[in-house]
């Protein structure tokens, strides 16, 4: 409040010579919020623009795409671009593959991470701290360190050109950061709950399923959302392992659309496929952004 009043005072002294009405209008204007909103809207425009441009382009004709122009939207929306896409076998295959892989990875990873986080947070056992420290140590290790030898491993297993290299590692609780996130959450659940259940004769597996899992729903949701977005967007692993067009996932399919040697490039088709690819992520993000922002803040600032 103090800042606001000083500002109006400054405005007042500057406009001392002005007529009374203008001065009172200026005083009534909340200059600071207006300025802030203007800057934020400019930022928001910068952040949203590529998405909007993508949507607009996906409805243009090839002629419109080829011309240098600033028009955001086409003269006449060409919904046929999407129609064309929805008549492509390759599109359905890629979309189905993406759903299939993402589903399997989510199921396997979330379950196994929940088990491991339970062990690290609710069970007391000799050697736990050591194993936990080891796990946190792997956070330091970049993905690239194991990417190469894992490829050799899967090559020797005969798994190149199958989905296995992408789906199977998920079952082994991949992602130390997510285990950490869930463990932190589970540590916050009152101890009395599982102790009471243990006294009633429940084994840890029952405690895990009946008590901890239902109570961990918010954290589980956070992890699921993270994994979904990561897996749906994932480009590197599919590029390395799937090398066969029947197995392609959406990211490769979308990226491949550009590799046609056409001129002018059919940007409207590429952008239409991109829109369909982005849509699930966009919907999930908008629905669950609360979890997202919590998750980033939790894992990101864990050392801070």
């Amino acid at each position: 409040m103090t800042t606001l009043s000083t500002q109006t005072k400054i405005a007042e002294s500057r406009n001392a010579g002005m007529p009374q009405t203008i001065r009172s209008i200026l005083r009534a204007l909340p200059l600071r919020p207006i300025l802030l909103y203007a800057v934020m809207i400019a930022f928001a425009a910068f952040f949203l623009f590529p998405l909007v441009w993508m949507g607009g382009t996906s409805l243009k004709t090839i002629e419109e795409v080829g011309q240098p122009q600033l028009n955001l939207l086409p003269a006449v929306p060409q919904w046929s671009n999407y129609d064309k896409l929805f008549h492509e076998d390759a599109f359905y295959r890629a979309f189905g593959n993406s759903l299939f892989i993402t589903g399997l990875v989510l199921l396997g990873t979330v379950t196994s991470i929940a088990l491991v986080a339970f062990s690290f947070s609710r069970l007391e056992w000799k050697g736990r701290n050591l194993v936990f420290a080891l796990m946190m140590g792997t956070l330091m290790l970049p993905v690239q360190a194991t990417l190469v030898p894992q490829y050799v491993l899967f090559y020797n297993l005969g798994w190149i050109r199958t989905f296995n290299p992408i789906t199977i590692p998920g079952y082994f609780a991949g992602g130390a950061a997510l285990i950490f996130l869930l463990r932190q959450f589970m540590l916050g659940i009152p101890r009395e709950l599982d102790e009471a259940a243990m006294i009633d004769g429940a084994n840890p597996l029952e405690v895990w399923w009946h008590i901890i899992m239902p109570l961990s729903r918010p954290a589980l949701a956070t992890i699921t959302v993270f994994l979904f977005v990561g897996q749906w967007n994932s480009l590197v692993q599919p590029l390395i392992y799937l090398q066969r067009s029947e197995l392609f996932t959406m990211p490769i399919y979308v990226a491949q659309k550009l590799n046609l040697q056409a001129s002018p490039l059919p940007w409207q088709d590429v952008m239409a496929a991109s829109m369909v690819f982005v849509l699930p992520v966009l919907i999930v993000f908008l629905m669950t952004q609360r979890y997202f922002i919590q998750g980033i803040t939790l894992t990101g600032s864990k050392e801070g």
């Binding site: 928001a44 590529p50 998405l51 441009w53 993508m54 967007n233 480009l235 979308v254 991109s274 993000f285």
Partner: peptide, 20 residues
């Protein structure tokens, strides 16, 4: 809105839009 690009930049779609 400010956070949205992080989600989008992980996948190829909007990167293609940038390329265009």
């Amino acid at each position: 809105i400010f956070y949205l690009p992080v989600i989008l930049a992980g996948g190829p779609a909007v990167l293609l839009a940038w390329r265009y």
